[in-house]
Amino acid sequence: MQCLDIRVIVDGKALTATVPVRLLLSDFLREQAGCGGLHVACGHGVCGACTVVLDDVPVRACLLLAVQADGAAVQTIASLPQLEGCEPERGLTPLQQSFRRYHALQCGYCTPGLLVATAKFLAGCPSPDRARILEHLNGHLCRCSGYANIIAAIEAVRA
């Protein structure tokens, strides 16, 4: 089985690892980089639960190989404060607080990927109208909330 050495910065920490070339980035992050907050729900790129930021671009971790992240920086839910541009270690970010306030999560399984993607979305589009928010959410499945509270939570934090 072919393996490669990779160097990845995960949530600010530099890691080196030897990985099988077929290892999915989602599995690498969960199993070798300690990113338990990254959730795999569909494994074929539809649901958005495993969304992470790879070199500043939001991507599905289940649709990349770990070797493709060689030399890159990956940000998961643990980097949400940085993605929102606020101080780390200061409790919940504004987006997290809004999700809590509006009861925008129930089982919470889809939540980390949704938060990562939403933080990145709002960074590029700070005052989205409802249509933009819905377009953004098209890439995310949630089976619990009925979505209305997710939309409300995002609307409440836009600039």
Partner: peptide, 26 residues
């Protein structure tokens, strides 16, 4: 060939595509 992988990787995951060699052109 692997470029964006947004169609190919789901096929790999379901083993509907089983190439001997994956050529990552990124």
């Amino acid at each position: 060939l692997l470029a964006g992988g947004q169609s190919l990787v789901p096929l790999l995951a379901r083993r509907l595509a089983c190439p001997v060699l994956l050529v990552d052109i990124n």
